[in-house]
Design a protein around this nucleic acid. Structure first.
Lengths: 225, 225
DNA sequence: GAATTGGCTTTCGCCTACAGTCTACGGCGC
DNA sequence: GCGCCGTAGACTGTAGGCGAAAGCCAATTC
């Protein structure tokens, strides 16, 4: 179907709309929480946030609702919102679930993988190793997330992907402080994982991913000592 | 810590509070959706719902937000809420995830199970079999849910339990029409599962639960024909 | 006759206002 | 001095209202 306007189809900037205010408030608050600007246990007063962000209480409330169902804040009735306080037990449980979801994603990715998709994975892995070599921790963390997200995408299971995205983000929040240490070894495992996926070896991909996330758990617990 | 009032601690009716309106609206709408009173794809007009429930638009909005993040309704910007339309692919993906979560729960339950807990499971199973014998489908479905919930509770993983609860409820919604058929065989499997948990046999419990939920999937797909 | 455009209606998104409830602090009695 | 009650403040929960965007229908033009 051709446009009669003569305008190029894709190049039109789509007239960038700010999008619903509640979503932007949600993102803003999530950013503040993950960056520790809002500390765990802190009381979030609606009117304060509203004033600070230059909006009314309504969008703030709706954002807090979502943050609540996503497990980022606890919403005590008639008392307000409090930034969720992570506990040891909960972190451990989250890691258990993450292991499950990621392992299944790896299995499905191995079952579905195509040649170009694997090339993309290899490329991401290359970049990751370069980032490690350059000691660029932020880039390393970002690439790690992108690699896992790509594998999740290859799995082709939207429901699984959404759950994993939420769990992953929270796991990352809990364990950011220790994430720095784990770098080189992690990318070696990534390389093995990609090889297993390329071989379409579901069992091996599952096992490698399971071991991979379990290493993360070990690292988390060793931090205590 | 002893109370100085002399009142029995647990027996106090807690001064029954209606609870936040948004939660009750949420429950009400979820009931309407799961019972098909509100059909998939239907446009949910805030003011209509508000008037029908005798509340203002605000609690309705907040309830719709939660329903959106939980996957029950789709919230198109500037257009409103529409009851989510389940697709074949999505149902299949949900079943995949459910299998994962339930199987892991069975494994953890086997690892943690105590004697009294197993007695409770046996009791639920007895009731379930009686309900099947009496052809009481509603009771059967309810007991099935309670049994799975109890196993999830034994697993002792709150995060897992919350995810599973959401997924389970949606799966049940998708597949209610065919749930009726599957009864007797299901409870035989339940009995085997409990035995495996009682034996603290993690591997067997996992496998039985996996097979159990996979049977559900097969049943779902056979319905098409 | 078909496509387009203009206005109109419906509904959402957001803001403001008011009432209910929980918490904290100060005064009072013991 | 210690504990309890009352009161005031603050914050949340809910209601109502206004502006704006999207969709629909009819009138108009080619």
């Amino acid at each position: 179907m051709l446009s009669t306007t003569g305008l190029p189809q894709g190049a039109v900037p789509k007239l960038e709309r700010p999008g619903p205010l509640r979503d932007r408030v949600y993102e803003a608050l999530l950013e503040l929480i993950t960056t520790r600007a809002l500390q765990p246990g802190q009381h979030l007063v609606e009117s304060e946030l509203a004033g600070h962000l230059g909006v009314s209480r309504q969008p703030v409330r709706e954002a807090l609702q979502r943050l609540n169902t996503d497990g980022w804040v606890d919403l005590r009735p008639a008392q307000g919102a409090f930034v969720h306080e992570p506990t040891e037990a909960e972190a451990d449980q989250l890691l258990t679930v993450r292991t499950l979801l990621e392992a299944e994603a790896a299995r499905l990715a191995a079952a579905n993988a195509s040649a170009p998709a694997i090339a993309v994975l290899e490329e991401l892995c290359d970049e990751g190793e370069r980032a490690v070599a350059a000691d660029d921790v932020d880039a390393t963390v970002a690439l790690n997330a992108r690699l896992h997200a790509k594998i999740m995408e290859l799995a082709g299971n939207t429901v699984l992907a959404e759950l994993a995205a939420q769990v992953d983000r929270r796991v990352r929040w809990y364990y950011t402080p220790v994430a720095r240490q784990r770098g080189r070894q992690s990318w070696i495992e990534h390389r093995e994982l990609i090889a297993a996926i390329a071989d379409r070896d579901e069992r091996r991909a599952t096992e490698i991913m399971r071991a991979h996330t379990e290493h993360t758990r070990k690292m988390y617990h060793e931090r205590e000592k």
